[in-house]
Amino acid sequence: SPEVQIAILTEQINNLNEHLRVHKKDHHSRRGLLKMVGKRRRLLAYLRNKDVARYREIVEKLG
């Protein structure tokens, strides 16, 4: 489901952010981070168009 995919991506994004705080010059990982953020944004847009209630619920849960 989109909610699960968004939750997994959010966790991976948070982990990668911590990694990049330590390894500032790791541009390869930064590119992966940007791809993940874009994918999460697309999934959220899809969910917002399909079911606003589910969209609001996941945004509330994940912050």
Score class of each variant (00 low, 15 high):
residue 19 H to K: 05
residue 31 R to Q: 07
residue 46 Y to D: 15
residue 41 R to V: 05
residue 56 R to I: 13
residue 36 M to H: 04
residue 60 E to N: 08
residue 44 L to M: 05
residue 50 K to V: 15
residue 34 L to D: 07
residue 38 G to Y: 13
residue 11 E to M: 12
residue 10 T to I: 12
residue 32 G to C: 15
residue 3 E to G: 04
residue 3 E to R: 02
residue 31 R to F: 06
residue 7 A to H: 09
residue 32 G to K: 15
residue 14 N to A: 06
residue 52 V to R: 13
residue 52 V to H: 11
residue 60 E to P: 01
residue 16 L to V: 04
residue 33 L to F: 06
residue 46 Y to R: 10
residue 54 R to M: 08
residue 44 L to T: 00
residue 15 N to I: 13
residue 55 Y to I: 03
residue 28 H to F: 07
residue 3 E to W: 05
residue 39 K to W: 08
residue 16 L to P: 01
residue 57 E to Q: 08
residue 42 R to S: 06
residue 6 I to Q: 00
residue 36 M to T: 03
residue 20 L to S: 02
residue 46 Y to E: 15
residue 58 I to E: 03
residue 36 M to D: 02
residue 48 R to E: 06
residue 24 K to M: 09
residue 4 V to L: 12
residue 57 E to N: 05
residue 29 S to W: 07
residue 36 M to R: 05
residue 11 E to V: 09
residue 53 A to H: 14
residue 1 S to P: 09
residue 31 R to T: 11
residue 32 G to S: 14
residue 30 R to P: 04
residue 15 N to E: 12
residue 3 E to V: 07
residue 37 V to P: 00
residue 20 L to T: 03
residue 20 L to I: 08
residue 52 V to G: 10
residue 49 N to T: 12
residue 15 N to G: 07
residue 33 L to T: 01
residue 48 R to S: 03
residue 3 E to L: 05
residue 8 I to S: 06
residue 17 N to S: 13
residue 38 G to T: 12
residue 8 I to T: 07
residue 29 S to K: 08
residue 4 V to A: 12
residue 61 K to R: 08
residue 4 V to Y: 15
residue 60 E to G: 07
residue 22 V to H: 12
residue 14 N to T: 05
residue 39 K to R: 09
residue 63 G to T: 11
residue 62 L to W: 05
residue 56 R to V: 10
residue 12 Q to M: 15
residue 52 V to T: 09
residue 1 S to E: 07
residue 6 I to Y: 02
residue 59 V to F: 04
residue 27 H to M: 13
residue 40 R to Y: 06
residue 14 N to V: 06
residue 17 N to G: 06
residue 39 K to M: 13
residue 32 G to A: 15
residue 42 R to H: 06
residue 54 R to Y: 04
residue 30 R to L: 14
residue 25 K to L: 08
residue 5 Q to I: 12
residue 27 H to I: 12
residue 10 T to H: 02
residue 4 V to Q: 12
residue 24 K to S: 12
residue 46 Y to S: 09
residue 35 K to N: 11
residue 24 K to V: 10
residue 39 K to L: 13
residue 18 E to R: 10
residue 10 T to E: 04
residue 4 V to K: 10
residue 45 A to H: 09
residue 23 H to T: 04
residue 40 R to K: 03
residue 23 H to K: 03
residue 24 K to Q: 09
residue 2 P to Q: 06
residue 34 L to E: 12
residue 7 A to R: 11
residue 41 R to M: 09
residue 41 R to H: 11
residue 19 H to I: 06
residue 37 V to T: 04
residue 22 V to S: 13
residue 15 N to Y: 12
residue 63 G to Q: 13
residue 51 D to P: 00
residue 2 P to M: 14
residue 47 L to C: 02
residue 30 R to D: 06
residue 53 A to I: 11
residue 50 K to M: 14
residue 22 V to A: 12
residue 36 M to S: 04
residue 13 I to C: 01
residue 53 A to N: 14
residue 63 G to W: 14
residue 54 R to Q: 05
residue 53 A to L: 13
residue 55 Y to K: 02
residue 23 H to N: 10
residue 54 R to S: 06
residue 41 R to I: 07
residue 18 E to N: 09
residue 48 R to D: 01
residue 25 K to E: 14
residue 9 L to P: 00
residue 53 A to V: 13
residue 36 M to P: 01
residue 61 K to A: 11
residue 14 N to H: 10
residue 8 I to H: 10
residue 18 E to W: 08
residue 47 L to A: 00
residue 5 Q to V: 10
residue 43 L to K: 01
residue 20 L to F: 07
residue 6 I to A: 01
residue 63 G to K: 14
residue 43 L to A: 02
residue 39 K to D: 10
residue 48 R to N: 02
residue 35 K to L: 13
residue 42 R to Y: 09
residue 27 H to W: 08
residue 20 L to A: 02
residue 27 H to A: 10
residue 9 L to G: 00
residue 46 Y to C: 11
residue 47 L to D: 00
residue 47 L to Y: 01
residue 54 R to V: 06
residue 34 L to V: 09
residue 16 L to Y: 07
residue 50 K to C: 13
residue 47 L to Q: 00
residue 40 R to C: 09
residue 15 N to W: 15
residue 57 E to M: 06
residue 28 H to I: 11
residue 5 Q to W: 12
residue 53 A to T: 12
residue 27 H to S: 09
residue 38 G to K: 14
residue 28 H to Q: 12
residue 35 K to W: 09
residue 25 K to P: 06
residue 34 L to S: 07
residue 21 R to N: 06
residue 11 E to H: 08
residue 37 V to C: 11
residue 13 I to V: 01
residue 50 K to R: 09
residue 4 V to M: 13
residue 39 K to P: 00
residue 5 Q to N: 05
residue 14 N to D: 06
residue 33 L to C: 10
residue 18 E to K: 08
residue 35 K to G: 06
residue 34 L to Q: 11
residue 55 Y to W: 15
residue 6 I to F: 02
